[in-house]
């Protein structure tokens, strides 16, 4: 029983990270209809910005997280202006290919020896140590991830549902033309959504970086997983992204535990293929 509880906590932490990254991706898809393959690159960049702030600027963990979030948000907004906005009317494979170009550029740039190099970097846990809850051990960092990701999700939900700016994002993802007709500046909303999505990815990366090593390839792996998640949840759906994230995390953790750790990644993708074979539109159909 304790083992199951232990795995449950691990899955919750993993799911929190997946959810943050997937939420950004699904928001951008909802608003811009762009499957942003560069998203994993932004996530990876967030981890490296956190590392650089800690290691080279010597600031604390929280300021490093904020620097990473702001830096990646800025870059994401810039990408929207320079690439995705001009491509908004192009055939849908074009922005996809451009995003792939950005992803591989970021990865190659970071792994170049004169930038960070191909070797992995490590970030010390800001809260070292273990919490013992009746036999179930939990690192403080995992607890931090669970709490922080839930807080961020709650904040995002508040922003989308309760503020005017947030409502414009929802409106635009429901109906672009309609949003424009009621006077929403769709241009600005697109940029804002990209910035938010970048910040979410960077926060997730900063949270998970002390547990996993920081490597240039981390974005590519995450990319595939969050895409699997948003396809599962229905592309553009916010609740779908959260449910999909935890579903994938639970499948990976428990599948890895009961079947084989070697095939943990494979289990996730196999689940995706099976779900799509049965329900091609994802678990949560989007009402557009």
């Amino acid at each position: 029983m304790t083992i199951v509880l232990q795995q449950l906590f691990n899955a919750l932490a993993l799911g929190g990270v997946y959810a943050l990254v997937a939420l950004g991706l699904t928001l951008v898809y909802g608003v811009m209809r762009v499957p942003n393959f560069a998203h994993g690159g932004l996530y990876m960049l967030g981890a490296y910005l956190t590392y650089a702030s800690l290691d080279r600027l010597g600031v604390g963990y929280v300021p490093a997280l904020i620097i990473a979030a702001l830096g990646v948000a800025l870059l994401a907004a810039l990408l929207e202006r320079l690439i995705f906005y001009p491509l908004r009317d192009a055939p849908h494979v074009h922005p996809m290919i451009a995003a792939i170009g950005v992803l591989f550029f970021l990865e190659a740039l970071i792994s170049h020896p004169s930038v960070f190099g191909p070797d992995f970097k490590q970030i010390a846990e800001p809260l070292p140590g273990i919490l013992n809850l009746g036999g179930v051990t939990l690192t403080w960092q995992r607890l931090l991830i669970i709490v922080a990701s839930l807080l961020v999700m709650w904040g995002l939900n508040f922003f989308l549902k309760r503020t005017l700016t947030g409502a414009t994002i929802e409106a635009m993802s429901q109906n672009r033309e309609g949003a424009r007709m009621v006077g929403i500046n769709t241009n600005r909303v697109g940029m804002l959504t990209f910035a938010i999505s970048g910040a979410l990815a960077a926060v997730a990366a900063a949270l998970v970086a002390p547990i996993n090593a920081v490597t240039p390839a981390m974005g590519e792996v995450m990319n595939l997983k969050v895409f699997a998640i948003i396809i599962l949840g229905g592309m553009g759906s916010v609740p779908g992204a959260i449910v999909g994230a935890f579903l994938l995390a639970f499948t990976e953790v428990f599948g890895g535990f009961y079947i084989s750790l070697d095939f943990a990644d494979l289990i996730g993708f196999t689940m995706l293929v099976i779900v799509l074979a049965i329900r091609p539109q994802g678990l949560f159909q989007r009402g557009t």
Binding site: I83, H94, I100, G101, V102, F104, F105, A108, L109, H112
Partner: peptide
């Protein structure tokens, strides 16, 4: 070699934007 996408990445972007 391993970093050819420093050149190829922007090339992909420019291609779809200006010479699809």
């Amino acid at each position: 070699e391993d970093y050819q996408y420093i050149v190829f990445g922007p090339m992909l972007v420019l291609l779809v934007m200006f010479a699809p």
